[in-house]
Amino acid sequence: MKMVVRYFKQHSRSTMIRFAIITFICLVAVTLLTQGIVQDYNRNKEFYETYGNSYYGYDHDWRVYPALPFHVFIIVILCTGLPMVEMSAFNSRKYLDSAFSFPISRVSMLSVNLINGYLQFILAYSISFAWYAMRLAPCADKLYFAPIWAFFFISLLYSLFLYCFNAFFFSLCNATVDGAITAIAWQHIIAVVLATLSDMFNFNMDEDHILMSIVWYPLGTISELYSDSASRNPYLSENDFKVIPIIMIVVTILAILFCAGTLFFFNRKRTESAGEISNTPVSYKVLIPVCAGMLLYWSLEGGGGIISLFALIFSTVGYIIYRRGVRLKVSDLVVIGVCFAAFIMGMMAS
């Protein structure tokens, strides 16, 4: 335990500059956001104070929109980027040659890195959120701050899930680029597959149901609800809030599962594979055919259009150039073949 604490201290010190940069960027982003909100508030206030609330012939209770979804953007970026940088060293064979000979277990080492990354996120996010609240303080007569702080704590819990979700894919992959592609793609892939299948087989799933399966989307929805609530929006029903505790329980359970999965797979990681093409089924060997199939379907159906087709070609070629070729085994070709066959059958059925 003593060694773990020593490593934690050393690792925190060595990543202090990164933390400072992240916090600075968050503060700048929040400053720009709140500047717009406060300017709108001042302009509206001046207008209605000059002309009164009944200027348009009826009482107009003007509001300030606190733009909480902006924080979801920060959370998604940081909770993808931080596990990536924390785990990128473990994709260097040279680094592992030294690191895995140190008198500390792999699980402890990874835990320290992940905890450090998450703590940096919490600190950077909390500081920027506090700055956000301070900047909005002049608008207090038009805002409820209780929902804003409630959103802050809910978003922190949700961010733990997002962080663990992404870390899980980085732990499965041998290279940082593979990990990034996999983690980002899997944030969307379930939703995109559902959308495509719904379209192909007329499942009659509405857009909201599909969007909810993007891993960060529920937080986006919650942020909208709390933004409305903070600005005294009359559309909100109590039912909107009933679903939030359920989402948070599910999210907590998933965070624990993904965290356990991350530690489990990292402990079994083969050192000699670090930096190699990732050989995990959730990586490129599934993503490339799945994304290609769906993009192809959308392009042919007119959904994705020519841009999707170009995006597909660009990303696939770019990935292959980066990896200096993709070594496909027979099992990979089978996966690709099955994926394409499924999409062709789907297209024929639709």
Binding site: M3, S92, K94, Y95, D97, S98, A99, S101, F102, P103
Partner: peptide, 14 residues
């Protein structure tokens, strides 16, 4: 804990 007594210097250290 066993590795506290071992120092490994790889051929191409990071």
């Amino acid at each position: 804990a066993v590795r506290e007594n071992i120092f490994f210097l790889p051929d191409d250290p990071f």
